[in-house]
Design a protein around this nucleic acid. Structure first.
Lengths: 210, 210
DNA sequence: ACCTGAACACCGTTCAAGT
DNA sequence: ACCTGAACACCGTTCAAGT
């Protein structure tokens, strides 16, 4: 076949195929040969569009982060509400593609969507009256919390079998086997409670700065 | 050589070798052949001690989590101080081996050290007067925050080169290139500020429950 | 029980060759 | 410029064979 007169591939098609595989089967299922097969080409073809496999995953991560709503930092919303709305949108974007999160949260993060996000939060907090050093820390701590919550379910860490928790070893985990059953409710409840606590706690510090 | 009269390997030796490779060169540098070479045996030998490579990494993750200090939940420390001390020890344990964190935070988490940790926090919060549903959420949110903070540096996400931040694209990132330089201070400051906010915010909720 | 080498079905990436 | 097949140096894991 050699070179077709119209390219068979594009960066967008490759990224879409990679995201589909990541979502359906996880990070480890993504291989250049697998993606190529999915796209009807041979393995090395991908290297005409990306320099490495990691660059493909970087682009996938970027499209996920690009889904995060940042409008609340520009429309005059008060900072506590802006932070809450943004964090929910941020978490929703990551939770929609949980398998890419470990890659996303590790990488160097100089991806455009990540920088736009950092820019918006920082600007929003400074405009609201936070000193720049605090605005930086707020962006960082929210990323810790959101990435951590999207990275792996807390509740899924517990098996549904009660016999897994010997009272001699784990005296307080008598009800832990119920967590798996209510995984989503537990994780969302923890996220909301933590978000509330973070923002309430920041309000305390904001007052002390006046 | 076949079977030696004294075993060449042990689970502990394999785990120690894996942790050393993870720390020195990252998760992707860990391969069964590489570990075997490091231990002076051939690749398949490892399968006499672990069923899969993931089981080896599970054991590595468990030894890291086992370093976390849980004593503050049993010695009568008031809950806000207990939470702060525990979170610092938790973060320190993970930050000492950042490369294992993505694996650790993702896994099913039915590792003994993880269960002991969950048991201690839950028991400590219930003893302090928190309703069980809240105690669960507190354990979960702290894990989100600590894992997220250990997973990847926030500050390292920014390049040290000022020209990377075109003011037209990122109007508020004019100083962002300084972050890389002060990476550790920035990440630790964000962790401490976030931890303070979380605990202060929880105190507000604790009052409302009375 | 615990080690070995050979083997299977994979990887990411490079490169010369084709149009 | 953009595709191909062949090739290189790797993987995780299984298995029969040895003591």
């Amino acid at each position: 076949m050699a070179r077709p007169r119209k390219p068979l591939l594009s960066r967008d098609r490759i990224v879409a195929a990679a995201l589909a595989v990541v979502d359906a089967e996880g990070l480890q299922a993504v291989s250049t040969r697998r993606l190529a097969a999915e796209l009807g080409v041979s393995g090395p073809s991908l290297y005409n569009h990306f320099r490495t496999k990691d660059e493909i995953l970087d682009a996938v991560a970027d499209t996920v982060v690009a889904q995060v709503d940042l409008s609340m930092f520009e429309d005059g919303t008060h900072w506590p509400e802006a932070l809450v709305g943004w964090a929910r949108s941020y978490r929703a974007a990551l939770a929609a593609h949980p398998n890419i999160v470990p890659f996303l949260a590790q990488g160097p993060g100089r991806r455009p969507a990540g920088l736009r996000l950092a820019d918006a939060v920082f600007g929003g907090m400074v405009d609201a009256g936070w000193p720049p050093a605090y605005a930086t820390r707020i962006g960082a701590m929210m990323r810790y919390f959101v990435a951590g919550s999207a990275l792996g379910s807390f509740a899924r860490g517990f098996v549904g079998d009660p016999s897994a928790y010997d009272p001699a070893d784990y005296p307080h985990l008598g009800q832990a086997h119920l967590l798996a059953e209510h995984q989503q409710r537990v994780d969302e409840g923890a996220f909301e409670t933590g978000l509330r606590a973070l923002v309430d706690g920041l309000a305390v510090q904001f007052e002390q700065l006046r």
